[in-house]
Write a protein that binds this DNA or RNA. Sequence first.
DNA 1: TCAAATTTAGAACAATTGTTCTAAAATCAA
DNA 2: TTGATTTTAGAACAATTGTTCTAAATTTGA
Lengths: 193, 193
Amino acid sequence: MNTKDRILQAALALYNQEGIRSVTTRHIATAMGISPGNLHYHFKHTEDIIQALFGQLTASYDQIVQDIAQHSIQTIEELHQYIDSSFHLIETYRFIFINFVELASWIPSIREAYQQLISKREKEFSHLFNNLAHNGVFRTDISSTLQNRLVRQLFLISDFWISANELTDQLRGEEALAVYREDVLSIFVPYLN
Amino acid sequence: MNTKDRILQAALALYNQEGIRSVTTRHIATAMGISPGNLHYHFKHTEDIIQALFGQLTASYDQIVQDIAQHSIQTIEELHQYIDSSFHLIETYRFIFINFVELASWIPSIREAYQQLISKREKEFSHLFNNLAHNGVFRTDISSTLQNRLVRQLFLISDFWISANELTDQLRGEEALAVYREDVLSIFVPYLN
DNA sequence: TCAAATTTAGAACAATTGTTCTAAAATCAA
DNA sequence: TTGATTTTAGAACAATTGTTCTAAATTTGA
């Protein structure tokens, strides 16, 4: 792996572990055994590192969305699989979700990229709902305003479940995934057939 | 108002407006026209300021809970009133909710105080549910595991709605309150009679 | 009123941070 | 091989930050 990617890797690990507050470019450099000068040769500004990591996140998310579009979700098992893979993504880029608001106000391009992500997800979710309704998993008498509220709830869980978990139970790995899955599904429960 | 309280007031305003990342003790001092030395005479460390503000938050919340305990919620209108006053509290201490995880890991006493807040809220919510069920507003066939999930959803909304709003619509004032109210109530909708 | 306690201003300090600069080392391309 | 390009190390810089220190001003209380 080249230095640029190694920097991103080291930065991600440190941001996730120590939090963006205490991690500096010097920390990242010393953690991976290179000089600060070298780090700033590859990333002139600290924001550039975070911006690149956010780019990785959106790229991975795009991949998931694309996979769904090709092979659309029709059963509960497939829904589980989707939930699992999106949770994995959130966990991988924990620090972004934990500091989302701060990052968005600090780095404008992140706010813009998030807006695009949102509209992509909105389409994806309404697609998902329609699919599940069409296959009889879901009730068909759900109004569009209600569907909108469900989407809002799903967004809230996707974006902030990891923060809530950090404040309360601090579950990790499989245990965390199980509860996350349950929490996401509990939104659907009242509307299942 | 004495200097100590004025510092807290100025700090709260700045943290809410600029975010904890860019606000320093010097900023707070110059914003209110006192010297840095004076500020640190009243609050030796920056954490002490944030800790005091968090104390204000929990104290205000305790007040709300106490009011409810005395005059318990039985109608939808009273539920609205409760939602409104808790939203007001969240909005007043925005920065805490926006940086909750970071603050909790930075200042251990905040994490501890939050744990206590959580258990207080859990009791309060189950009380609320039972009241509403008893008064026929709510269905009575809701299992305790389901109730637990509802509580989790309510916590997620209470603690992170303001963050989600910041990332997306950035609603303010009355408009924000209206949507918040709607989002909280939409959790109850499937279980109303 | 006057001495003691409290509050305040502002200089000063040490540590840290993001970033730049320079020169050396490594890699590449012909 | 050799000359150019890229990568790297590490010193250096300027700005900032939290905090401390000292002395002056203000308030308090008897």
